[in-house]
C-alpha cells in the first residue's frame, strides 16, 4: 500500500473523530442560551440527572432537546440547509415561499377568533360604530411576485383593492411577513374613505429611514435573504403620550429607537405586542378602541390624527374579558385590525 494512501486514511479517520469530539467540546465550552430571538421561544436548559427521570425516559428526552436547542452555530447550519435547498430549485422551504424579486411569502394561521370579536363588539356598540380592516397577506397583494402556480387566499375588499393598485410600491417587507408603514397607510386610506374621515395625506407625513438592514421573521425561519429590508417611518407628527400595560411597562412613545438594533426590529412600532396600550393625543374628542394583531402596530400612528384617546387591545394577550372591561369606559368607536388565516393554493 502506498504511503499516500495510508496518509489519506489516517487523515480521514482522525478528522472524523476529532470533529465529532470537537463539536462536543465546543458545546461544553459555550454557555447555554436562554432565549432564541429568531425562534421567539425559550430554549431548553441542561437537565439535571435524576434516577427516576432516567428510568421513565424524561431525562433522555430533555437531554436530547437541550442538545439540539443549544447546538453550536445553529443559525449557520440552518442557513447552509437553505442554500442547499435553493440549489435544488426548491421554491418552498419550511413554509416560506421564495418569490420573484427576492420576496419571501408565508401562510398564516390566525391566533384569535376575530370574527367573534367583531360580533361581540357589534352587539355591545351597534353596527355603525364597529369597523374592520382585514390585513391581506403579502402574497395576496403582490400576486406577480408569488412563485407560479401558487396563489394566496384573500378577502377582496376596499383595503385589498387599494393595496393591490399600489403593488409596485414598497408596501410589504421582503424578509418579514408584515407590511411597511406605506402599506399600512393605503389600508388606512381605504378605511378612512369608507368611514367618511379625511386621511392624513401621504405627502404631509414626515418620512425617515430608521433602519437599512432589517431582516424579519421570514429570514429568521430560513436564515437566507438576498436583499435586506428598510424600515421607514411615516410620522404624522401628532404629539401624544403613550402608556403601556396600564403603566406596568417602562416604555413610552409610539416608536422605540432602541429596538431597531434588536433581532426583531419591527418592534420599533409600539414595542411589538402588549395586552393594552393607551394613547392620548391633542385632538379634541373621540375614544377609539382598537382590537388588533401586530399588523396594526405601524397603522395606529395614523389614527392619532383623529381621536383624543386610543385604547389598543391585543386579545391574544389581554387576559380580562374585553366587553366587560370596556363597559367602564366611554367608547365612541371600535376598529378591528387583523390578518385572517391565509392559505396557499395551487
Amino acid at each position: 500500500m502506498s504511503q499516500r494512501k495510508i496518509k489519506k486514511e489516517m487523515t480521514i479517520c482522525a478528522a472524523f473523530l476529532l470533529f465529532l469530539c470537537g463539536m462536543w467540546a465546543a458545546d461544553l465550552l459555550q454557555e447555554d442560551r436562554l432565549y432564541s430571538e429568531w425562534e421567539k421561544r425559550m430554549l431548553v436548559q441542561k437537565p439535571k440527572w435524576k434516577l427516576n427521570a432516567v428510568l421513565d425516559g424524561s431525562y433522555e428526552h430533555t437531554y436530547e432537546e437541550w442538545l439540539t436547542d443549544q447546538f453550536p452555530a445553529r443559525d449557520q447550519w440552518v442557513s447552509m440547509k437553505t442554500r442547499c435547498e435553493i440549489l435544488l430549485g426548491k421554491k418552498e422551504i419550511d413554509g416560506i415561499y421564495l418569490g420573484k424579486d427576492d420576496f419571501l411569502f408565508s401562510e398564516n394561521t390566525a391566533t384569535a377568533d376575530w370574527d367573534r370579536m367583531e360580533a361581540l363588539m357589534t352587539e355591545q356598540y351597534g353596527k355603525e360604530k364597529v369597523s374592520r380592516i382585514h390585513v391581506p397577506a403579502a402574497g395576496a397583494v403582490l400576486t406577480e411576485k408569488v412563485p407560479y402556480p401558487v396563489k394566496f387566499s384573500v378577502k377582496k375588499d376596499a383595503v385589498w383593492e387599494n393595496l393591490y393598485s399600489h403593488r409596485d410600491e414598497y408596501i410589504y417587507y421582503r424578509t418579514d411577513h408584515h407590511w411597511t408603514m406605506r402599506g399600512a397607510w393605503y389600508a388606512y386610506e381605504a378605511w378612512a374613505e369608507e368611514r367618511g374621515i379625511i386621511p392624513v395625506p401621504l405627502e404631509s407625513v414626515k418620512k425617515s429611514v430608521q433602519k437599512e438592514n432589517f431582516l424579519g421573521t421570514h429570514y429568521g425561519r430560513i436564515h437566507y435573504a438576498k436583499q435586506q429590508d428598510v424600515i421607514e417611518l411615516y410620522d404624522p407628527g401628532i404629539i401624544c403620550s403613550v402608556v403601556y400595560d396600564l403603566g406596568e411597562s417602562q416604555r413610552s412613545g409610539l416608536y422605540q429607537d432602541d429596538l431597531l438594533e434588536s433581532e426583531d426590529a419591527y418592534r420599533f412600532f409600539l414595542d411589538g405586542n402588549h395586552p393594552v396600550i393607551q394613547i392620548r393625543t391633542n385632538q379634541e374628542k373621540g375614544h377609539l378602541v382598537v382590537l388588533k394583531d401586530s399588523f396594526a402596530n405601524c397603522l395606529i400612528p395614523f389614527l392619532t390624527a383623529h381621536y383624543r384617546d386610543i385604547t389598543v387591545l391585543d386579545p391574544r394577550y389581554f387576559r380580562a374579558d374585553i366587553p366587560s372591561w370596556l363597559e367602564q369606559q366611554r367608547v365612541t368607536e371600535v376598529l378591528i385590525i387583523s390578518q385572517d388565516s391565509v392559505h396557499a393554493v395551487y
Binding site: 429568531w38 425562534e39 421567539k40 421561544r41 447546538f71 447550519w77 440547509k81 419550511d94 391566533t111 425561519r221
Partner: peptide
Amino acid sequence: YIVDASYNPFLYFRF
C-alpha cells in the same frame, strides 16, 4: 438538515 429539523420557530409569524 438535522439541525434545521429541530429548528422550531414557535408560531413565529405572529409575533
